[in-house]
Structure formats: C-alpha cells, structure tokens
C-alpha cells in the first residue's frame, strides 16, 4: 500500500495527500463489499468519482499508517453509513404491501413503509436487508435472535 495522509478540513471533508504530494479534497471512503466483507477493501474516492487510494483492509492500514488514520476513516464511515439493525417488530399495518412497519432498531424507534415484498433481500438464510420507500436500509442480522412476535410478523413477508 502506498503511503498517504488523510485529514479533515474546516468543512468537515476529508483531504488526502498522496505520496507524490498531490492533494485531493472532498475524499469519501467507500467499502467495496459493504455486505459480504465490510472490513476487506476500501477505496478513497475523490469528487470526480476516481479512486485515489485503495486500502486492503482496515487492519493492514493500521499497521502500515498508524491507528489515527484508521480512526479517522472509521469515524467518517460511521457518519456515512446508516443501516439500522431491527431489534424488534412492534407492529405492521398490514401483511399486504405497502405496509407500515413500526420497529425498534439499534438507533431508536421508528416506522417506515415497505413498498413491496421484493424490497426484502435475503442476505443469507438468517439475515435480511430491507429497503423502505425512501431508500433507507434496515438490516436484520439474525432472524433467530428476534423475539417470537417479531418473527411471526416477519414470517408473513418471507
């Protein structure tokens, strides 16, 4: 991995200084496999959408360039990523779609509208990704970990 420097400017944006001294502003980190392997491969993308640096994994980044840079990237990622995990389904308005779901998530209580059954994506046998009407994604990391009431409601959509 080529060394580079990363900092945050007054506008809250990342600024990347490549090893050849070139400076790229408004850098955003992007995971290559956000679902199947979130830790394994990150690109730093500039405003134009060009890749300016590739990070094999956050662990190798830390060993190569120090923990500060890793923390910075992780902070920025945390600010960008919003996939609340559903902990409990309190209520669904109907078993037909569109249906309004009231849920408890790891980021608080909310409700959303599920447009169609095809917006529920099966990631594995036990985990799901649900996209609501506005494009917000919710995940259910482990169906078996939900309580019985939630499982029964969910089952009607699967």
């Amino acid at each position: 991995m080529k060394p580079f420097q990363l900092s945050r400017n007054a506008f809250g944006r990342l600024v990347l200084t490549a090893d050849d001294g070139r400076i790229y502003e408004n850098i955003v980190p992007a995971r290559a496999f956000p679902i199947s392997a979130p830790e394994a491969g990150l690109a730093l993308i500039d405003e134009e959408g060009h890749e300016r640096a590739w990070i094999d994994s956050l662990a190798t980044l830390e060993t190569a360039l120090g923990s500060e840079i890793r923390t910075l990237i992780e902070t920025v990622l945390a600010e960008r990523e919003f996939v609340p995990a559903i902990l409990r389904l309190r209520h669904v308005s109907t078993f037909a779609t569109p249906s309004t779901w009231q849920v408890n998530t790891d980021r608080g209580e909310t409700s959303f509208v599920l447009k169609g059954e095809e917006d529920i994506r099966l990631l594995s046998a036990s985990s799901l990704l649900i996209t609501d009407r506005d494009g917000v994604q919710y995940r259910i990391p482990d169906i078996a970990a939900l309580d019985k009431h939630s499982r029964r409601l969910l089952d009607r959509f699967l």
């Binding site: 007054a10 506008f11 600010e79 960008r80 919003f82 609501d132 494009g135 917000v136 994604q137």
Partner: peptide, 21 residues
C-alpha cells in the same frame, strides 16, 4: 445511501450539519 446531510457553510468552514432520512 438513503441518508441526507444538510450543511450550513460560510466562507471559512462548516458551521453545523444535520442528518435526515
């Protein structure tokens, strides 16, 4: 990815930002 950011900026930097779905 479904989350919006609203930023209040002036010439020197970002004064505040909000996030929304």
């Amino acid at each position: 990815a479904g989350v919006g950011t609203l930023e209040l900026l002036d010439g020197n930097g970002r004064l505040h930002h909000w996030r929304y779905t």
